[in-house]
Write a protein that binds this DNA or RNA. Structure first.
Ligand SMILES: [Zn+2]
Ligand SMILES: [Zn+2]
Ligand SMILES: [Zn+2]
Ligand SMILES: [Zn+2]
Lengths: 129, 129
DNA sequence: TCCATTAATGTAATAACATAACATTGTTGC
DNA sequence: GCAACAATGTTATGTTATTACATTAATGGA
């Protein structure tokens, strides 16, 4: 299940994220990957940095946790949004061109240069309602 | 500059936030408020909890920091968005009905019940460009 | 007024999340 | 082989947030 040219640690972390149905914190990942030889938080954080740069994983700011990207080559999309169920912790990844457009417009009107946008809707999903 | 019926600690924290031109972390606040008698992080976090509930302050998830609300009675707005300059740390608070509408639509289509939405655009402001 | 209930506070200890610093190893291209 | 760079390993430390428990203040009846 290796993707691209991931290093050993990156591959371990991405696989573990991929197996999880819900977001995992760096320390969740570390606990799971100790048996594979990883010993320190930094090994996890460094792998996560690269994976998020590559668009293979995403950081959820409201949870301090990470998910594997749900789409192939997601980092083509400028804006990625997440719905997060506070009961079952499932995450839905989506994007919306109209939202992107409106935020771009806000930025243009102020000569603000966006670098990274975070959009997370916390709530309760249909199943949990 | 007290607002509503704030308690002593809430008032101290809100005033300190109001004086700051940029977001402050809980520990930034604690450092500033030690001279006023506050001694422990929990005193700050408890005040911040109430202030954010009341809509008088907002938490910036991508910074783990807090700002005083820029608007009167902001919590009437469902969705509050922030532009954050990564150079000068200034914050612009805004809302956009069209964005709100699109996100509401996404939620309705999935029977997802939003509780709290976080929208933060990190970037470089006009002055810092 | 007295008492019960709830809200707010004080304090210490600890948990959870993230990075700095530095030494070492692996990979790539010449 | 060697220089340059990327990735790794390891220890220590910094930063953010919560648990637990004791105390005090405000509120609202009986
Ligand atoms: Zn993605
Ligand atoms: Zn759910
Ligand atoms: Zn506001
Ligand atoms: Zn700026």
């Amino acid at each position: 299940m290796s993707e691209q040219n991931l290093t050993k640690n990156q591959d371990l972390v991405l696989n573990q994220l991929g197996k999880s149905k819900t977001p995992m914190s760096a320390y969740d990942l570390l606990d799971k990957l100790r048996e594979k030889g990883l010993k320190a938080p930094l090994q996890i954080y460094r792998a996560l940095d690269k994976l998020t740069e590559m668009g293979l994983a995403h950081r959820l700011e409201t949870l301090n946790a990470f998910v594997a990207c749900a789409h192939p080559n997601c980092h083509e999309n400028e804006l990625i949004a997440f719905g997060i169920c506070e009961n079952c912790n499932k995450v839905w990844e989506f994007s919306d061109d109209e939202v992107s457009k409106r935020l771009d417009l806000w930025a243009k009107e102020r000569d603000f240069t966006p670098v990274k946008t975070s959009l997370e809707i916390r709530g309760i999903c249909a199943k949990c309602a």
